[in-house]
Design a protein around this nucleic acid. Structure first.
Lengths: 344, 344
DNA sequence: TTGAAAGCGATACCAT
DNA sequence: ATGGTATCGCTTTCAA
């Protein structure tokens, strides 16, 4: 049934009425306009028959709204982002929104380009994990009345809505957990990054070691550069150079994966030689032997708040700009990797 | 700089020339139309100044093409699909296409609904991992001249382009690999599914055990129903009920993860008690102890062929319908989990 | 109760 | 070489 596209005009012609009337009926304004129910029925049955569906494109052009939300993250193939994507998508569709995704690779240039492209596309809203140096671009977006919602990280300088987790406190608690297990030399293997959430994780670790009078041992790994080997080497070198370490805390799970590899290669036993905790819990952590202690980010909650927030922002048609600030708690899952056997 | 939207009309007015002229210049038809280079320069500099960008919405409406490709997979949060998404996205953007994603959950109803929605949205192409029972919908799409490219699985009944991997042969080789390691009782833990690729994996396994005169041991696990525990129990039961097994082949990696858990809980040693091979290689397999032998699907190749193919389909404006049929080879990575120590 | 017509932003045919 | 204008499909104000 290669049916040709049928437009509102066709149906008006076929039923010998005006386009306006059809439009009213389509948009549920029939009552309001007191169109005879007989006509309404005729139009509706014709629509049924022909399977007519209005062109979203034309509607968007006319109304200036496209019902499209951009989901711009660092890397859509990353488990964390992909999971959020999945959860958000569902809610979006329920509300008539489509989602376009894109990955910034944490590159400000790429991010700006993408945002520029989408502005022209008349998208309605942006869900963004901001790259560095994006403050002015975000500000512009806000001024131009787009709905913008940051997540995973945010920018203190810009008064923009966000949904994040308690990074500082979580890192503090994870470190403290290691202290409670009797660890005295706790290393942090950390992404060198300007990203706010990373700074806060570092701060949380620092607060904890300071509180318990321990020494700081931090390895700064340059930002993910797609040469995993380099990370592996860096971590290996760090562990070798600091043989006194009895615990390591990874500030993100992809570093933990490389770290586990390094630890294996060095022949160290977990947790006896080295206790391990990682930010960002992962399915894998409970499969690895021993199970790895992880800090879980509440994916469902994040996704829920993200979409609720976005819909909220979308609703208030550029009225007053309510700013959503959501900081969600994480959950520490203590597992074998951080429980010293000698613990009584 | 909350600059108000500027349209082609505005710029024509500002420069006191006609819309047509501006349009020609914008579309690089200036030469063709022999517009004075002086005027061209004036227009171009004005465009620079104002940062004008044409409305894609209007262009789409006018041209009937939206430069949007739908990427419809079973579950975007799945590592395999997310990785492909990431790779495709890049190529798409380079070519001026945006990608909208959606997950079908392998539900034909949802898939049909989504396709219906996107048809109205005037998307240009569809990249789809078809759910069962989608033949007629796909056929319609084809008749209506959409660019459609299936992947991961395909439908024998429909003459539609696809990009897949050599499922049968790969499963055969993996099974044969186990035979070569001296395994005599090779089990297959398999998703019960109508999906073509799954049927082929089963067929490959069968061909191998038959060739070597071995007995078949197949566990059919019902399709992913989000209750992982059930899968774990099923696998555990199967392993208990077939104590003679000396190897298991998982037809997909999420089953392998649950399987590894089951094996751990049963206290079986890999590979001494039980050798393990899985379809779909995973980062994790080389981290697990012992390393798990996996069949790698060539992500980059798949993504490349997918986008090349899609662009090709998009190009031929409904001329003759070239059908792309791409079957890519996989790579078996033999690792510790399938190499018997007794092997001399 | 229904219809005519303007307009969203851009393209391209037909004039001049 | 440039410009006028119909058109894509739809919403909505104003008139009738």
């Amino acid at each position: 049934m290669a049916k040709k596209k049928i437009s509102i005009k066709d149906i008006a012609k076929a039923l010998d009425i005006s386009i306006t009337t059809v439009s009213f009926i389509l948009n549920g304004k029939a009552k309001e306009k007191r169109i005879s129910s007989e006509l309404i029925a005729r139009v509706e049955s014709y629509i049924q028959e022909t399977g007519y569906r209005p062109s979203h494109l034309a509607q968007s052009l006319r109304l200036g709204k496209s019902k499209v939300i951009v989901f711009m993250v660092e890397d859509i193939s990353n488990h964390f982002f992909a999971s959020i994507a999945r959860l958000i998508e569902e809610k979006a569709f329920e509300n008539g929104y489509k989602i376009i995704y894109c990955s910034t690779e944490n590159d400000p240039k790429k991010a700006k380009e993408l945002i520029g492209t989408f502005k022209v596309r008349n998208v309605d809203g942006f869900v963004i994990t901001p790259t560095p140096d994006l403050e002015s671009t975000i500000s512009e977006l806000l001024e131009e009345d787009f709905a913008v919602l940051l997540f995973d990280r945010w920018m203190p300088e810009v008064d923009c809505s966000y949904v994040i987790v308690e990074n500082e406190q979580s890192a503090f608690e994870a470190t403290e957990h290691l202290v409670m297990q009797g660890c005295k030399h706790i290393g942090l293997i950390h992404v060198e990054s300007d990203q706010m959430q990373m700074k806060l994780r570092l701060a949380g670790y620092r607060r904890a070691v300071m509180k318990y009078g321990l020494a700081e041992h931090v390895l700064h790994v340059p930002f993910h550069n797609y040469s995993e080997n380099e990370e592996l080497e860096k971590i290996t070198g760090f562990l070798k150079a600091n043989p006194e370490l009895d615990a390591v805390f990874f500030s993100t799970n992809y570093l933990a994966f490389e770290g586990l590899r390094a630890i294996q290669q060095l022949g160290k036993r977990i947790p006896d030689d080295l206790a391990v905790v990682s930010f960002d819990d992962h399915y894998f952590f409970s499969l690895f032997q021993p199970n790895i202690t992880g800090i879980e980010q509440p994916l469902h909650q994040i996704a829920d708040r993200l979409m609720e927030g976005m819909l909220e922002l979308l609703k208030e048609n550029g009225n007053q700009k309510a700013v959503i600030r959501e900081v969600l708690p994480t959950v520490l899952h203590p597992r074998g990797s951080s429980v010293k056997k000698g613990d009584k």
